[in-house]
Write a protein that binds this DNA or RNA. Structure first.
Lengths: 220, 220
DNA sequence: CTTGCCATCAAACAAATGTTTGATATACTT
DNA sequence: AAGTATATCAAACATTTGTTTGATGGCAAG
């Protein structure tokens, strides 16, 4: 890590720090120490702290766009399976903190606290995923829907996932420890959200013995 | 406002400032200037900045608990109507920024970025609402459900609402201006979320001419 | 009146933070 | 070899921040 360009050393060191503490709480000295460069380097290479931050976000989502392969399904994959896969991916990306790359954290920060780097991030990174989800929803729905409705359903899906990321603390307080240990793994939560959504759009039921035929366990 | 006790003047001035900028970004000088008191007053009356913050959060939710009346329904009110009312209240509380009292902002901040004041806030303020929502879900569901499942459905409802609060910026980028103007009012969004949820738990359908009988427009 | 307590105040303090400066070394050009 | 542009560095700078200090004034009890 120490034979790289100073500029890139700063960028890669700034990433995790900005991701963890946010723009204001991260200090240039901390970043420079992590990068093992002089404090003046940031101002020399980037002008000021803010421009470093924007560059870092740009860099983060560029790395992320390359790393994340949108799941490729065969043409026989059922939309329900696609939805399950999509939700699992989304939730996994948000929750597995340990392995969560700093890029994801930084991007989430940009969602909750948008700066000037936000628009670019949405257009290049979120919109493709959003459109993919919208496509799945259209496949699932029993009829053609106006796009605003498809979009709102997408937001409902994403919102359910995001909740466990931003309000996890609340969940742990409201729910019992036993239930948390048993029913709140990433896989269990993804299954709940997918099932809830499938049921909402009329492509299955949440309940094993509901009136409608049990077509929610198809293929998979 | 200037004849009150200094201590309460600080508390009421600190509220909106902490709510808007968060703990770290708010400065004691700013708070003291707003309260028209000496900078030393905070340390004299509260010890330090952090204890002032905790007191402010406590004060916020105490005021809020009194102000917010849980909607009282008659015993003939259908659970679907209750859910619509609940979602509308939740979403309204989160979105009407203009009139949003600083207490709500501060509480949201505590959700997203929990401090030691969080647990007390959840127990005294959120849990009653949560239990009420859980009761509605139990009424709606076609069969008895394990409580963890009821809770997860509650989280799905709250998550859908919270999304428009924390990621509104993303919504405005992803959705067209025309659709935003037409279909993203608080009432429209509340209706979508309620309908989505009703459909998910098998108490209605999102689609006017779906296979199941259209029992989602009952009474209301 | 004096004493002691309490609240308030201006001023100072110490630490942290983003940025700038001027020197120094390295590498490339002429 | 001389000169020039570039990158790096330690040090200093100017602000801002939370906190402390010592003085001042009011006020009730003795």
């Amino acid at each position: 890590m120490s034979d790289e360009d100073t500029r890139t050393r700063i960028l890669t060191s700034a990433g995790p720090i900005f991701a963890e503490k946010g723009f204001a709480q991260a200090t240039v000295r901390e970043i420079c120490q992590a990068a093992d460069v002089n404090v003046a380097s940031i101002n020399y290479h980037f002008g000021d702290k803010e421009r470093l931050y924007i560059e870092t976000v740009r860099c983060a989502h560029r790395l992320r766009v390359e790393a994340v392969q949108l799941p490729a399904w065969t043409e026989t994959t059922t939309p329900a399976t696609k939805l399950r896969g999509f939700v699992r991916m989304l939730l996994g990306r948000m929750l597995e903190q340990a392995e969560t790359p700093w890029q994801s954290q930084l991007m989430l920060r940009e969602v909750l606290n948008p700066t000037s780097a936000c628009r670019e991030l949405v257009e290049e990174h979120f919109r493709p995923h959003f459109e993919m989800l919208a496509g799945i929803i259209r496949e699932l729905a029993p009829m053609a829907l106006p796009s605003y409705q498809v979009h709102q359903i997408c937001f409902s899906v994403v919102g359910q996932c995001l909740y466990y990321r931003v309000a996890w603390k609340i969940v742990t307080i409201l729910e019992s420890d036993a239930a948390l240990a048993t029913h709140y793994s990433i896989d269990k939560l993804a299954e709940h959200i997918a099932q809830f959504t499938l049921s909402a759009v009329g492509a299955g039921s949440m309940f094993p013995m509901a009136g409608t035929p049990d077509n929610n366990k198809a293929i998979d």
